[in-house]
Amino acid sequence: MRSESLRNIWMLSKKNMTLYVKRGPVLIFGLMFPFFLVISWILGRTITIHQIFIGIVAMTSFFTSTAISPVILPIETREKSLERLLSAPVSFNEILLGIIIASTLYSIIITSIISIIFILPFPTLIASPFSYIIIFIGISLMGVLGSLLGLLVSSKPTDMTSDIMVLMNLIKFPLLFIGGVFIPLSSLPSSIAILYFFSPLTFVTEMLRSSVDQTNLLSNEVSILFLIGWIALFLTLNYVLHRKTMPKRFSEAASGPKMKKMRKK
């Protein structure tokens, strides 16, 4: 039974990766957006190569991980394929895990490629061989966390991708600005630094800083613990909210004018 579940999750992840990586919203918000954001951030400023690396890796990881997961459920609701999956021998949890894994893998692959491209001409950028492991753990946890965040936003029972992407951006940008990418946590007064703890991105940038220029305030262990805590919270919220809103995705007739006449007395 367990192997059947694993096979289903893998099949769903493969399907999600092949079908959704080339979709417009994924390309725009996952690749183009961080690219232009990085360009506008570094052009005309005096920023060290270490800071650029941290910024690029953190933003790529954050944007790619939150690109696929929010669009899958609205698209599949509109195309009715979600209903097909729910009536197939696939559990609700397997469907959600299929989305999380596809989104996480997409983020890890893209971020790893960008990191390698950046590290190759600057091999002394990384503090020690152990730092590579820390970077990988950081981008992996960010991949999971971003995917969960995207999935959580898509718990709104709509079939309009644009609705979800607007909401997603509304959440993403504040989290990016208090995520320690542009201003390190260590250089902030404690009254403002506390705000940074509300962005999961802070802990990833802290791990990147510890691996590159050691300007981190938090140790890697603390950052990992915080990230795992955020993951547990988002996982629970996803489970609860999607269970609650999933039936509403198919009850469009229930809100139609004809049905309103049949309300309970």
Binding site: K15, L19, E79, K80, S81, E83, R84, S87, A88, S91
Partner: peptide, 21 residues
């Protein structure tokens, strides 16, 4: 549910096949 759902074949009114497949 999984065992019993395998007994069903479902044909919807509107196609629910993946359009890009």
């Amino acid at each position: 549910p999984k065992k019993l759902k395998k007994l069903f074949g479902i044909v919807p009114e509107i196609s629910n096949a993946y359009s890009d497949y």
